[in-house]
Design a protein around this nucleic acid. Structure first.
Lengths: 344, 344
DNA sequence: GTCCCGAACTGAAGCGCTTCAGTAGCGCTT
DNA sequence: AAGCGCTACTGAAGCGCTTCAGTTCGGGAC
């Protein structure tokens, strides 16, 4: 016996297929007795509705697609957490696909989503070109999380990287630091804005002559090299890293050089990933409200369903999470005059 | 204009719907000229086949479902990497769903998969009860990765936890350690076997009187408490932790107590997660071949499609990854007699 | 010229469901 | 006793596709 259909149930229960359909979906129409019979038969036969037939007939799917740029980054997991719950509650199925970093794969995944008649789609950190996204969004309500787009067809949710950078610098400033350097993220998502935010904040605080940028991408190795670059000139008292991975790279390098964090140098990261908390030394970091971003994504999509046609852009506020990698600047503490013994 | 259908294309191209269907799927039947016309019209209209209609009519879906127990654990990301590529190549769509740790949600996700007529399903670290999995597997070819099951309906892929534990103990033994304790994972997946492997290995090496087990789940906090438990008796020279999270918890606690790793005590983890490498102190760990496990999962499912009916069980070999958290036992080094100054 | 055959194409059934216009029957009113 | 409005139900159309039994036709074999 293959999968039972509505007709099987109808026959067993001695009613029409239409009535079974309505009853199983909780619509009124059947009397109490009949309803019980139908439900009983369905249960006994192990009936599972055929989604294809259902979607075809009803011209709707109650499904939404989520495209993940990358599964390894804990950023995605948090966003997805925020995303799925509201949809599940509203009776939507959430199906996810991954693009594996390849635009071709991402594009084909979007085709699949469209083929399945997904009623809405969320793209988290897509690497796809803007034009493809735009074309897709013409057909399916789409929200993009974690990537800035110029398109006015999709809803966009990002955090204010510039502001986050400014908060980081301000935090260090408040601790008495003046010689604050930046370890750069190069062309990574958000890196440009974070660098800009750093420069602006330094200027605003009158620290223009202390502005120094080193490094160049989102890897730990490049970060270590960046630290060396900085030290070749002079040791900063604090470093603002473009993200947590970079910050950890710096941490390791400082340790290798015999510099103590936060006694000799303070380090602050960005993203507040699980990395930041798991390290033996807790990393002070700038947090993006990732779960919230997910929830907001769900809300925006729902609004679309309810008729909103204008695209929305939400820029969320980042916040500071203090841990033990930042402390008062050496000079502003009681003068211990502890010269770091750089062993190389 | 809504989504174009086969009929739209047929009309524009002046042929029958059947011919369009066949042509778009690459079947022979149309002449060169006609074929070009059809393809051209389809392209121009932006045709995307309706998956629901297609699946309904063809009684197949070319789709496979992947249930993720949890998105935060890097374990899953690696397995998925191994899984998706072979399927994409074979022209399958891979759609993922998450159970969010709740068996109820996992069960409903499986229903969704079945509703969509997925031709095969891969469960990665499911938390669902065995009976539900078994019931599901009666209807859809299923492979389970990372969890042992007694059922003979599903294919199972796990690593040999017992062996892995044995390798860990042997590694410590070879470094001269004798007083080797175990930080337990309680009821977590694999924990029981790892504990058993530890005990067996200790016996085999004639270290029966050194067997000590503390802790009790897969959390860092519980691990720290486990360390205290151990130290209340006497400090071991080495600790085998049930997984990397536990190992890191132990690392932190040892540091807090002023004990140096690996000078005073060696620590080895399990899973070789990204955690192990990212830590300032590289964690020696036991690696499961995760990507391979994913690839194997894909292969097993394909075999099922081709007619294999007997369930397969694959137990893969774990390997040791040495980093800097393990070193020669203090006693077997030049006698420094460095008593740890336990500050609490 | 007839026959046959393959290439190129068509028509219609039907996948399992939803939807909607009906219909039957019953208890009320007036 | 006719009419009304309910509730409880049925029948049939049709969603967009695949599939398969046919149909048409040009041309080579004899």
């Amino acid at each position: 016996m293959s999968r039972p259909t509505l007709d099987d149930i109808a026959e067993h229960a001695g009613v029409s297929r239409a009535l079974v359909s309505m009853t199983l979906r909780g619509l009124p129409g059947a009397g109490d007795e009949t309803r019980r019979t139908i439900l009983g038969v369905a249960e006994r036969l192990g009936y599972v509705p055929n989604a294809a037939a259902r979607n075809l007939a009803s011209r709707s799917s109650k499904a939404i697609g989520v495209l993940l740029g990358e599964l390894h980054n804990p950023f995605f997991a948090d966003v997805v957490d925020g995303l799925t719950a509201p949809f599940e509650e509203a009776g939507f199925h959430v199906l996810m696909g991954t693009g594996l970093h390849r635009p071709r794969a991402e594009r084909s995944m979007l085709e699949t989503f469209r083929g399945y008649g997904m009623e809405g789609v969320v793209l988290i950190g897509p690497e796809l070109d803007e034009h493809s996204i735009q074309r897709f969004a013409m057909h399916v309500p789409t929200v993009v999380i974690g990537r800035t787009l110029r398109t006015d067809l999709v809803d966009v949710i990002v955090n204010d990287d510039r502001r986050g950078a400014s908060i980081a610098v301000q935090h260090l400033f408040d601790l008495g630091h003046r010689d604050i350097a930046h370890l750069d993220g190069g062309t990574g998502p958000g890196a440009v804005l974070r660098r800009r935010g750093y420069v602006d904040a330094m200027r605003r605080l009158g620290l223009e002559e202390h502005i120094r940028v080193a490094g160049g991408d989102f890897t730990a190795a490049r970060a270590a090299a960046g630290v060396d670059e900085l030290l070749a000139d002079r040791a900063p008292t604090a470093v603002f890293a473009a993200n947590d991975v970079v910050a950890v790279g710096a941490l390791e390098r400082f340790a290798g050089l015999g510099l103590s964090v936060p006694d000799d140098v303070s380090v602050i990261g960005y993203d507040n990933t699980s990395l930041a908390m798991q390290l033996r030394i807790g990393l002070t970091s700038i947090d993006q409200p990732r779960v919230l971003m997910g929830r907001l994504g769900a809300a925006l999509l729902r609004e679309r369903f309810e008729g909103r046609t204008l695209a929305a852009k939400h820029v969320l506020a980042p916040t500071l999470v203090r841990r033990s990698s930042t402390a008062a600047a050496p000079s502003s503490r009681s003068h211990k005059n502890r010269k770091p013994n750089v062993r190389n």
